[in-house]
Every structure is written in structure tokens, then in C-alpha cells.
Design a binder for these strands. Structure first.
Lengths: 349, 349
DNA sequence: AACGTTTCTGGAATGCATTCTTGTTTTTGC
DNA sequence: GCAAAAACAAGAATGCATTCCAGAAACGTT
């Protein structure tokens, strides 16, 4: 009976003008009815709603955006979507934003520093209402320029940018988790501990060595540390592990600063015939399926990444609201989860 | 010198009207200059471009979209972004679309059938130019209704929907890979092989049992198969594996139909103290870091998921072009990669 | 009864860029 | 040197919805 929308003809969407004509009222009255304006008589309301139903009318989002000056969309620039940690952040943010009526537009920087700024500018031209950034680099000048001139609220996720840019931040306390991990290793008897760290241009890559230093300072002078910064890539994980194994005095414990680094590290350890938990102790950052299913299970410095995304989205919504408060910074804890991959070093257990 | 954009005042963007006033020409002339229309004198072109540079003018994307009737954006509805396979598909599609000037808007259905149609309708109201769908269910009536009435080209990824919906499709040949895997297991001597399969409402969940049947038909009557369909979730992987282990006659080989299923399966196998490759042979679908780093490495039915995303995007671009050809279906191969997780069954090797 | 309020509604301006139509100016051809 | 053609530019209509302003009708008050 009221089948209406025949998919064959694919009738052009109705406009407000047509609704007004059918209901025999002015366009402005249609708008008033639909936007819940109080100055509307019951009789007219019925007429308009009838016409709306009859024409299957839906307001044009573009026209509304143009008029209202907002698009109800948020841009998310992220270093690498195939990293499960990033994916979880996206999931957390997407749910919060969707429930608030915003849609999330993603752009992947593929860990390419130049794409960060390109994507920010792209989002600017697309007139997003706000930005969430998980940058490939926090220091690239073009990126900072782009942020400074973007004109909409910005939230950085697990990153830190100069305060004058006025960005909110959702970050993890990587140093605390690292401190606990190193303390654990020291207690097990390790005296030479290596940290394969990621990029110094991203907050986690700077915070984790700090946490390690704190633990070592408390442990006394006889514990040696080796820090190998680089990038958060599988290839750096491999190269750094090779370098560690080539030393005359090998570390007895290795900490991988991310899941890609872990993959590279594990591959090289296996290739060298070393058994995790027996020949070398291992800790990684972030829990992925691999960490618990590996034999032995791999200790990790863990965090709630979905929550991180949620918080980032909430910080953005806070700034998008009526008053739009000042930028804030929220710190989310990390916890160290010891597992069988950590054991006393050979000869001391 | 030409610093211009002071971030303090955050000057409102200039409009075409202001450019026209400054250059002392008509708005239409500005438009002509910027859109490369031929009927433009060199002298005016210079005046306009000067004014554009001076005001740092950029056309308003919303106004352009409204006028032109296209948004240069593509919606992507996907079952679950935290699945690395999906993430790769997104990466592949995003790069292709970005290079063609389109942006990719993501909505995550969290494997929730009801969200599929909600997201499609949302994208419709947002006026995306096309849709890429990796649906949670291919058969849900509301979803099919939404596709039928969406009015823009649709491409499904690794899914199959009724032909009358006119969707293009990028799919993998899951049956072929599965056939090769089962053949391999049979050759090793396995006579009772289990397939923990995913949802029957998604193409891979239906194709893989078919491939298995093909291999079994060729193998003769003495090979038994056990197929346990369900969902592509970790919990189904766990439950199905428990069920298999509880049987009086356990299968000697298990095939997990996806990375989440593998995770659940492995967890239960370990819990039961069974060693992969010794007590039971194991095959999984899709390569993830876990498959090669696990000890022993796990055989997999592998495919190029980034390519799958690329092809999906290209199929969409094809339909978005001038003529907009008919929907097409592209099949991308899968390959079986035997690894140490597959060995002859106990007592026969 | 006359005036002030409400309540409701229509019209027009607005946001911004595109494109068609029309009119002017310049160039070309014979 | 003039008609025809081409080049160029202005103005207005268009896409669609929002919102301010003003006018009309209905109501109440003294």
C-alpha cells in the first residue's frame, strides 16, 4: 500500500520547498515545525508533518551544515590504523562521538610525517568541527603550523604538543608502568636490561625511558641499562635485537616498547634459537593476542586503549559544547602484568 | 614578511564575494578563474589570483558540495575495525580513494547486525557519493532495504548480496584455499578434520565449508569432517574447540576460520595441555603476526587483504566515474601456506 | 471601543559557490 | 568598413535550509 520509494525510478529527494508547497505553507513554517520552534499552531504542524511523511522528506545535511556553520563530523589523523592499539583507540572514540551525533572521519598517515599536516589541512577544508590527532611526529614544523591555524578544537591522543597550540590531551602514564616492569626485572636479579624504544617524537617513546631511569635510580648503581630508540616499527625491533645479541655482554632482559617492536624482536630471538623466559626475559608494551598466547606468555605493560579513545572523544566533545571550556589533559594509568616470560637470569636462579 | 595568517585573531575565512570585491570583478568571474574556465582574460586572471592569495581564500567545501551535488566522500561500514584483517582492507581502500580525491568515512558496526542498516542510512543522509560495505550480515532485511534505497553506488567487500541490489563485489576465493589446506591435511594422513567456521551470514563462512567438501569428495569416503559454524568471535572459537575436545573421537586436525577463532581455539588447546603440531594439527585463515611467531608456526590460508581493499575502492571509483559502468565482481585468490603446525596425526607418522 | 499583547505565519536575507543567460566589447573575415 | 563571430564579464537563478523581521489575526484589558 504505502510502499512509496520505488527503487526503479529512484525519485530525487524532496526539498523543503516541495514540502512547503504540498502543505501549502511557507518554507519557514516547515523549518519551524521540524526544528521544534514553539510558535507553531497544532493545525499547521499536522499539515506539515503529513507532507513530510508523504514525500519521505529528509533535510539535506549539506544545506544544514552550510547554514549552521558546523558539519557534525570529527577528523581523526592517526599514524597507522593497522596497529591494533590504534584501532582500539578509534573504536573507543567512534562510539562516544557517534552517540553524540558526530561522525568520525579517518585519515591514515602510514607513519609518514608529511601526511600528518596534509591530513590536517584536508580536514580543515572539509570543515570538520574538531580534530583528534595521534601524530606520527609531535615536532614537525608543518604539522604544528597546521594545528595552529586549523581553527577548531584539537585533542591529541598519547601525544604531547606545545602548550600554546591549545590542544587537549589524553595520554597514558607510560613511565609508571615501565618503572614497575623494570623494578620487577631487577627484583628477579637482572643487572643488564635493554629497552627497545620507539620514536622520540612520540610521547610514549620519551616517557618509557624516563620510567626506566626512575626504577634504575632506585635500584642502585650496579644495574646497567641499554636504551635503543628508533621507530615503532617491526624493522627497528629486528635491528635493535640483533644489535643487542651481538654485544659481548648481552642483556639478560629485553623490553619491547610496542607490539610492532615485539614482533621484530621475537622473530630475531627465535632465529637465534633463544628461548624466551629461559635464555632471555622479555617484556612488551600493550597487550595483544600474541602476548598471552605465546609460550611462555609475555609480560606486558598494559593499558586500556579503548578507554583512551573514549577519553579523547570526551575531551573533544567538552570543547565542542556551548561554552567550550579550556583544553585539558587527562592521564590514564598503565599497569605492569608479569608473566612467565620474565624469570631470573641464567645462573642466578 | 608575508606571514599573514595570525593565529591570534583567527580571521574568519574569506568568501568568494570578498575576493570578487577586492579584485573588483564579479563573483562569477572569480569562479571562472578558479575552475579553469576558458573565457578568462589574462589580465583578470592575475587580478583574481592576487586577491585570492592576499585573502588566503579557499573555496568552501560545503557550498561546493551543495551546488555540485557530490561530497567527494565515501562511507565504509565495517563489521569490526579492531580485526587486523578489516584494518588492512581499510588501509588499501583509503589510499586508493585518497589518491582519487575522495575521503573515507568509517563506521564500525561492532558485529551488530542492527548497526549495519543504521550506518547505511546515516551515510545516506550525509550524502556520501558511494558506499563500501563489509556487512555483519548479508541477509538482514533492514540492511537490504537500506542498500536498495540508498541511491549511490555500493561495493561489498568479501560479502555477497542479492544481485538485484546492483552492488559490485570484491571477494576472496576462500574455497580454493580451504580445498588446498584440507588436501594437505589428508595427504598427511588425517582422517577426521574439524572446521571451526564463522557466521553463515558472511560469504567466507559459507565458502570455506564448500572448499572443504570439494577436497573431501576428492579424498574418498574414509575422511570424516566436522563443521562447526557460529560467529567469527573468540568465544565461538573457544566453545567450538571445547566441543571438539569433548568428543569421544577427537579430530586430529582443526581449521580455525579466522583470527579471532584462532585465538579462542589456541587458548583452549593450551588450557587442555595439547601441543599444536604434535597432539593436534592446526590451520588458520589469514596471516597475522601470531601465525608465524607461534611455536610451531601455524599454517594459514592466506590472502592479500590490503589488495582486497584496493580492489574494492577501484570498483567503487569505476562506478563513480563519468559513465559509471555496471556492477562488477572481482575474485582475489587465497593461498594455503603449510607450516609446522601441520604434521601427520599421532600413530600414523 | 480602542489599544496593547500574544500567537502565528509569510517573506526575504543569509550562508557560499556554480552556471546559465544576457549583454558588451573585441576580433576576424570579406 | 561593416556584419558576423568570438571573447569576455556581469547579473541572476540555483542548490537547500535557517533565521530574522514584519505583518496579520486573535486575545485580553481598562
Amino acid at each position: 500500500m504505502s510502499e512509496g520509494r520505488s527503487s526503479e525510478t529512484r525519485r530525487r529527494r524532496a526539498s523543503m520547498r516541495e514540502v512547503a508547497d504540498l502543505a501549502d505553507v511557507a518554507i519557514s513554517s516547515v523549518s519551524r515545525v521540524l526544528s521544534g520552534h514553539p510558535d507553531v499552531s497544532a493545525e499547521m504542524k499536522v499539515r506539515v508533518l503529513d507532507a513530510v511523511a508523504q514525500l519521505d522528506y529528509e533535510p539535506d545535511f549539506l544545506a544544514q551544515s552550510l547554514r549552521r556553520g558546523q558539519t557534525l563530523s570529527v577528523g581523526f589523523v592517526l599514524a597507522d590504523i593497522s596497529n591494533p592499539v590504534m584501532a582500539d583507540i578509534v573504536v573507543g572514540a567512534e562510539v562516544v562521538l557517534r552517540n553524540a551525533g558526530y561522525s568520525l572521519v579517518l585519515m591514515n598517515s602510514e607513519n609518514n610525517v608529511a601526511l600528518d599536516s596534509a591530513h590536517i589541512r584536508f580536514f580543515q577544508s572539509r570543515r570538520v568541527d574538531g580534530l583528534i590527532l595521534s601524530l606520527s611526529s609531535e615536532t614537525h614544523a608543518e604539522t604544528l603550523d597546521a594545528i595552529a591555524s586549523v581553527g577548531v578544537p584539537v585533542v591529541v591522543v598519547d601525544r604531547e604538543v606545545e602548550a600554546h597550540l591549545g590542544a587537549s590531551a589524553a595520554v597514558n602514564d607510560h613511565a609508571a608502568g615501565m618503572e614497575a616492569a623494570v623494578r620487577h626485572l631487577v627484583e628477579l636479579g637482572h643487572r643488564r636490561i635493554a629497552l627497545i624504544s620507539g620514536s622520540l617524537e612520540q610521547l610514549p617513546g620519551r616517557e618509557r625511558p624516563l620510567g626506566m631511569q626512575r626504577a634504575l635510580a632506585a635500584a642502585g648503581p650496579d644495574v646497567e641499562s641499554i636504551v635503543l630508540p628508533g621507530s615503532f616499527s617491526r624493522s627497528h625491533g629486528e635491528a635493535a635485537t640483533r644489535q643487542l645479541l651481538a654485544r659481548s655482554e648481552r642483556p639478560t632482559a629485553i623490553i619491547a616498547g610496542g607490539n610492532q617492536l615485539l614482533i621484530g624482536c621475537l622473530a630475531v630471538l627465535q632465529e637465534a634459537g633463544l628461548v624466551v623466559g629461559r635464555d632471555v626475559s622479555l617484556v612488551t608494551c600493550d597487550d595483544v593476542p600474541l602476548t598471552v598466547l605465546y609460550q611462555p606468555p609475555i609480560a606486558s605493560i598494559s593499558r586500556d586503549t579503548v578507554e583512551l579513545g573514549r577519553v579523547a572523544a570526551e575531551l573533544l566533545l567538552e570543547r565542542l559544547g556551548e561554552d567550550g571550556g579550556p583544553p585539558r589533559r587527562v592521564v590514564i594509568p598503565t599497569v605492569f602484568r608479569p608473566r612467565a616470560s620474565c624469570a631470573p637470569p641464567n645462573g642466578s636462579g
